[in-house]
Amino acid sequence: MSSSDKPTTPVKSTGLHVGEIKPGVAKKDPILIADGVRRQFGGLTAVDVAHVEIPRNAITALIGPNGAGKTTFFNLLTGFDIPNEGTWSFNGKSLAGVPAFKVARMGLIRTFQLTKALGLLTVMDNMKLGSTQQTGEKLWASVFHFLWKKKDVEIETQALDLLTRFKLDAKKDDYAASLSGGQRKLLEMARALMTKPELVMLDEPMAGVNPALTQSLLDHILNLKKEGMTVLFVEHDMHMVRHIADWVIVMAEGKVVAEGDPYEVMKNPAVIDAYLGSHQDVDLGTVTGRITLPKQGKEK
């Protein structure tokens, strides 16, 4: 990847689906499949996804109005929450009942809507924490420096490389708490990449990011695909979705209401209905883009 400021032009992947486009359509090469996943909080059904497939090596956007259950769905897929019923699998392996840390070890990494940079660790320590299979993380081995020294140096090189790409290398010895909101988002993404994931799930990667940083964040996401990873992200900014997503899944009231190509899906009446209710004459990008209109309250 180049570290120049020239924006990367997205190369859209096409022909991801099989057959007629409808909610829950089958994909040629799905990496993640969810079936009948339902999560209730008391009387409220937060997520009720009948069937959905995420295409491999593509950028998929998960959109929907506030309270549509996107973050809850993320939590369910990654083991941070347990659904009342349903099955879901990653690379053909069932993830039902698999704890979050094991899901992560299988190559499915997620970030959080509210950034979770570890404030009182240095940026470099944050990065090193992302690396998997470290001998030095075992209790007894950790006491013996020589057992993990070599691996630690390797990790540091790898981390420094990533930090340079994310333009955080100058901050590597600072505490993460001293970073700006946007830098923390970058750090969280870079830290996720330290695990060498197959599928990266980003929960609102653009929320709270300084506009000056958005372009580089977009480039980073596009580069993930270039490097062979799959990206699934939640986003409210429709301009960004149109710009980089290869495929869009729309959720409303816990259900998948539409799927498709980013330009086509915006014309779907179900989507317009979900987003706008009665304001059907307004352009979607204006309504949901966060620059023109102030952002509504965070969904939980």
Binding site: F80, A100, A104, K116, L118, T132, E137, M194
Partner: peptide
């Protein structure tokens, strides 16, 4: 050590550490 790094991470935010594949 890296072990210490993990527990300090847990002190800061255990969800984040869990999301990185640590038990």
């Amino acid at each position: 050590s890296p072990w210490g790094r993990v527990i300090k991470g847990i002190r800061e935010d255990e969800e984040a550490v869990r999301s990185l594949g640590k038990n």
